[in-house]
């Protein structure tokens, strides 16, 4: 924590920084020499047309794919080569564009999957010391329940129902709870409102903002197509097109950018 004073003095000390980051799939340059910084505590909107590399950026940051060149640092440490496990332990958690919950498992189970690093995983503890396990289980349960309550109080009474029977909005909420339960420093949200109505999206974003206020210092990067959501909830935006950053700044600024308008209108 030698960097602490620097973080306090400059508001925009980057918590996550990509430099010259490149990822190709065969002939496709999914991300192309991308320089991107996320400041401590901000909500950054990552936008761009379909196929512009937003999801790939998340996948490279979280270690699912290795970068072809360039680097990623998180809190000053290089995580370019880190495994998904190491990235999670460092304090980054995420949701997936196509919901990836474990459908036969309960709401509680799904959220506990995200709580992995805070749970005692020793065999002896889990199998033999059942009293101690029960205490950890009970406190985890209350924590998970309180988190779900922020998003939807009725849902918090159904913690032991299988996720498979729940509508999309509830699944999205649970995915976000799964990402938040471990109290990450950085949350990557990949189209959290995909498959939801306009009103549901608004509600979900309000809930996310509410949770953020409770977790001091939480930084969020959000990929989202609904521009209203981006305008209302982000501090800053980065626009990608064909894997490159074409614009960056406040929503008002990027919305006025000709290049951005062209990218979205499909003009080349």
């Amino acid at each position: 924590m030698t960097r602490k004073p620097a973080e306090d003095s400059t508001k925009f000390a980057p918590v996550l920084a990509a430099r010259g980051l490149t990822k190709r799939f065969g002939g496709v340059l999914a991300i192309d020499h991308l320089d991107l910084e996320v400041a401590q505590g901000e909500i950054l909107g990552l936008i761009g047309p379909n196929g512009s590399g937003k999801t790939t950026f998340f996948n490279v940051v979280t270690g699912i794919y290795g970068a072809d060149s360039g680097s990623v640092t998180f809190g000053g440490a290089d995580i370019t080569q880190a495994s998904p496990q190491a990235v999670y332990h460092a304090g980054i958690s995420r949701t997936f564009q196509r919901s990836r919950l474990s459908l036969p498992l309960s709401i509680f189970d799904n959220i506990m999957i995200g709580n992995h690093k805070r749970l005692n995983q020793r065999l002896w503890f889990n199998l033999i010391r059942r009293d101690a396990f029960k205490r950890e289980y009970e406190s985890s349960f209350h924590e998970a329940r309180a988190l779900v309550e922020v998003f939807d109080p009725p849902l918090a009474n159904r913690m032991f129902e299988a996720v498979v029977g729940l509508p999309m909005i509830d699944r999205r909420r649970i995915e976000i709870c799964r990402a938040l339960i471990s109290q990450p420093k950085l949350l990557l949200l990949d189209e959290p409102s995909a498959g939801m109505t306009h009103d549901e999206t608004t509600q979900l974003m309000n809930d996310i903002l509410e949770v953020r206020d409770r977790i001091p210092g939480l930084t969020i990067v959000i990929v989202e197509h609904e521009m209203g959501v981006i305008e209302r909830s982000t501090d800053r935006c980065v626009v990608l097109n064909f894997g490159r950053k074409i614009s960056e700044g406040t929503f008002t600024k990027i919305a006025a950018d000709r290049q951005v308008q062209e990218a979205y209108l499909g003009l080349q």
Partner: peptide, 18 residues
């Protein structure tokens, strides 16, 4: 829970430290 998680989705499980 770990075993279920890795059976159902190895990639997602890995992203949560498993």
């Amino acid at each position: 829970l770990n075993l279920d998680a890795l059976r159902l989705d190895e990639t997602a499980a890995g992203c949560f430290g498993l």
